[in-house]
Design a protein around this nucleic acid. Structure first.
Lengths: 120, 120
DNA sequence: ATGCTATGGTTACAAATGTAACCCGAGCGG
DNA sequence: CCGCTCGGGTTACATTTGTAACCATAGCAT
């Protein structure tokens, strides 16, 4: 999903339903896009099936057509596939080697895995 | 970096120096691209400064202008920023919640972190 | 009633990306 | 010598993405 569309999805996931005007206003503040730009993107996203629409009284209400978790998973898997041969381990390894993980982050990871372990 | 260019970089990182013909042959097998396509991409990549060129006897020899590790790190950080607010922890958490990590992979991660801990 | 604003629709246009043809010169294989 | 392949350059064209203007309608506010 292109970045511009992702930005809109984020807001929908957060506070759907939203009308065009609401989205446009938000996007204008966040990115400086004009209403036109936002409307174009919404149209494209609709065509791609990213959105569910409901005819509201005053204006249409837009909802994401799928949950964020699903989109995030797909993007993540495609990313891991492309750069790390699909392996999260390889990714973490790389980051560790590059020392681009803070001690803090490493602790965090360990905690996540430990929590995992408990549930088993 | 666009995907098509990334594919070429992967080969250069693996076995540079390579000539156009070598790259083209490899790409043709791997993706079905014609020589033209590969040459176009090489030209673009050259313009973007992705490549270092040496005038060989017979043909130019191409090298990546930066190491894979560097490119991977940049792409990874941009990806993490976009989807996970920059947090690897959040990413792993998500994958765990989605149960899209095998027991095997979790073990692997733990091992990586443990190895880390040793070195400190 | 009348203009302003929100809605929705259509069209535009540049840059990036994917994919490729065409052209020319040089050297290799016969 | 002569065609074929290789290397290198230039041009082309569709699709996707980023960004936006233009147009028409319907209701709200004065």
């Amino acid at each position: 999903m292109p970045n511009s569309e992702w930005l809109i999805m984020e807001h929908l996931w957060d506070k759907a339903p939203m009308t065009v005007t609401q989205i446009a206003k938000t996007m204008e503040e966040e990115t400086g896009w004009t209403k036109s730009t936002t409307k174009t993107l919404i149209a494209r996203m609709g065509a791609k099936g990213y959105l569910r629409v409901e005819e509201g009284d005053r204006a249409r209400e837009y909802y994401p057509a799928f949950p964020r978790s699903e989109a995030v998973l797909a993007e993540t898997q495609s990313f891991l596939g492309r750069l790390y041969n699909g392996s999260l381990g390889m990714m973490v390894n790389t980051l560790v080697d590059q020392k681009s993980l803070s001690r803090q982050e490493i602790k965090e990871l360990r905690a996540i895995l430990d929590k995992m372990g408990e549930v088993k």
